[in-house]
Nucleic acid binder design. Structure first.
Length: 495
DNA sequence: GCGGATCAG
DNA sequence: ATGGCTGATCCGC
């Protein structure tokens, strides 16, 4: 879609070495303002600048201004900052004047309370899509609304959520800022997505490679795991996990594979003919292998040990500013060629589709058509996501439109590239429809229907029905209502 | 403790 | 709302 809207769009591949190198430069500046600053991620950090302000007799705002300016001078990167009484508030404030800005929230209690009062719940760090919707359902839209609705919150969301939300309402947050390495790691895992796979031998091979990958990570982080967890995602996007506790902490690919294979086989029995699109292995209940964490006899000194300060050397060539040479002309050419080829393929494809659809009523739907072209659909809608299939059809549509546009008077009609049903000519509605056709729920319905009924009936409207109910949590609701009569699960309140 | 689910980045 | 990946946490059972 982006390519369609923006044909000159340049695709840039990820380059984590580059980002890490840049982050290192930025952190070198931050360090001067708080030697014990906390890296929250590659591009986020918390600093306690209390001491810096005292030592330099500066306002927090001036100190932060200066720090941002220094970061920009030394790295050519602009950053935004929030200045507040604790980490939670600072994080929220940092989003106020993005990009390249800062915002200070005074630390007076009344100021903080009125700041929170009008703040939409979603702005708070642990309130995500789901909780936002659930809160909304009981009339809580802002953090101020939390307090007035406290009567419901405990029973609906549990004690933990209650205390968390009360803290949110009050604008409370942690003030202890410390290096990330001092935070103990809880798990090490790896997972990967692949084409639908059901052949047991192929799955074994995949498991083997997953185990080898995890061994690498365990080696790097110097951990063994006392618990081993297998994760699996079916072609329907359902996710399952299974875990075991080996007799001793595991580490090598052989051990990982041998202990996870039975779990995989059990899953194969539970779901005969299961088709996977993702597999992962994770170790928890970690045991540190770092020498410093072992006692005189080589036994683990503690169960939970901090991470090592890891400073991986990247063998990347950098220019005088520390930037990797870029954009790479070679890459740009290759990428352009790829896009062109894509377009030619799409042209070809849409041509064929249009032809067949016109002389072969009722026309194939896009799915059947693409399947006949050997393009996986339904079981592998990432092809759509990559813009391959549906873009072809969009292309065909806009082509037709362009050809017929001079007279201008023409029954306009956009066909959904996924379900092939005609849609109203309205960008917003069309987008909504496509979203519906691509939603997880819809995919699941289609895929499951496809597997239960071999001969497929004429494709039902993919979108309307499923978009309408996509907000719910069907499975959980049905189950809880069936099993526990009046004591409804909280999930059933928000359908 | 297990398995599902949410959340963040 | 969507994809992929890593990691943390919470809840019900």
């Amino acid at each position: 879609m982006a390519d369609k809207l923006c044909p000159q769009l340049i695709h840039v591949p990820l380059n984590f070495e580059k980002y890490t190198a840049k982050a290192r430069q930025v952190r070198a500046v931050l360090e001067q303002y708080d030697p014990r600053f906390e890296s929250a991620s590659i591009d986020e950090a918390y600093l306690n600048i209390t001491k810096y302000c005292q030592d330099h007799n500066m306002d927090p705002e001036d100190a932060v201004s200066q720090m941002r300016e220094q970061v920009f001078q030394e790295t050519k990167i602009t950053i935004s900052a929030g200045i507040a009484a604790n980490a939670k508030l600072a994080k929220i404030c940092s989003n106020k004047n993005k990009p390249n800005g800062q915002f200070k929230l005074p630390s007076e209690r009344t100021t903080i309370l009125s700041f929170m009062r009008d703040l939409p719940t979603r702005k708070v760090n642990g309130i995500g899509r789901v909780l936002e919707r659930e809160l909304d359902a009981i009339g809580v839209k802002t953090c101020g609304d939390i307090y007035s609705h406290r009567q419901y919150i405990n029973r609906l969301f549990g004690e933990k959520a209650f205390e968390f939300l009360m803290g949110v309402y009050l604008g409370l947050g942690r003030t202890d800022v410390k290096p990330a390495e001092e935070h103990a790691r809880r798990s090490v895992g790896t997972e990967s997505t692949f084409h639908d796979m059901s052949d047991p031998q192929e799955l074994r091979d995949k498991l083997r490679r997953t185990a080898e990958s995890l061994e690498e990570d365990l080696k790097r982080t110097e951990f063994k795991g006392r618990t081993l967890c297998l994760k699996v995602k079916l072609h329907t996007y359902e996710v399952f996990t299974r875990q075991v506790q080996p007799p001793k902490a595991v580490f090598t690919a052989d051990e990982l594979y041998n202990y996870s294979l039975p779990m995989l086989q059990k899953l194969e029995k539970e779901y005969p003919g299961m088709k996977l699109r993702l597999m992962g292995l994770r170790c928890t209940h970690l045991v540190s292998m770092k020498k410093a964490d072992l006692d005189f006899f080589g036994r683990a000194r503690q169960l939970n040990t901090p991470n090592p300060p890891q400073d991986s050397k990247s063998g990347v060539e950098l220019d005088e500013d520390g930037w990797q040479k870029w954009p790479d002309a070679e890459f740009e050419d290759a990428a352009r060629e790829e896009r062109q080829q894509d377009l030619r393929d799409l042209e070809q494809l849409s041509q064929e589709y249009a032809e067949r659809a016109s002389k072969d009523p009722p026309p194939d739907d896009a799915k059947t058509f693409l399947q006949s072209k050997g393009i996986g659909v339904g079981n592998d809608y990432t092809r759509y996501g990559n813009g391959f299939a549906w873009r072809a059809l969009l292309e065909a549509e806009s082509q037709k439109e362009a050809e017929a546009s001079p007279p201008k008077k023409r029954i306009e009609q956009w066909n959904c590239p996924i379900c092939s049903l005609p849609q109203v000519v309205d960008e917003r509605k069309f987008n909504e429809h496509i979203d519906g056709c691509l939603s997880r729920q819809t995919i699941k319905e289609i895929v499951q229907q496809g597997s239960s009924t071999p001969e497929r009936k004429s494709a039902p409207p993919l979108s309307q029905a499923s978009t309408a109910k996509k907000r719910g949590r069907p499975a959980a609701v049905t189950k809880s209502e069936k099993s526990s009569g009046e004591k409804r699960s909280k999930t059933s309140f928000f359908t």
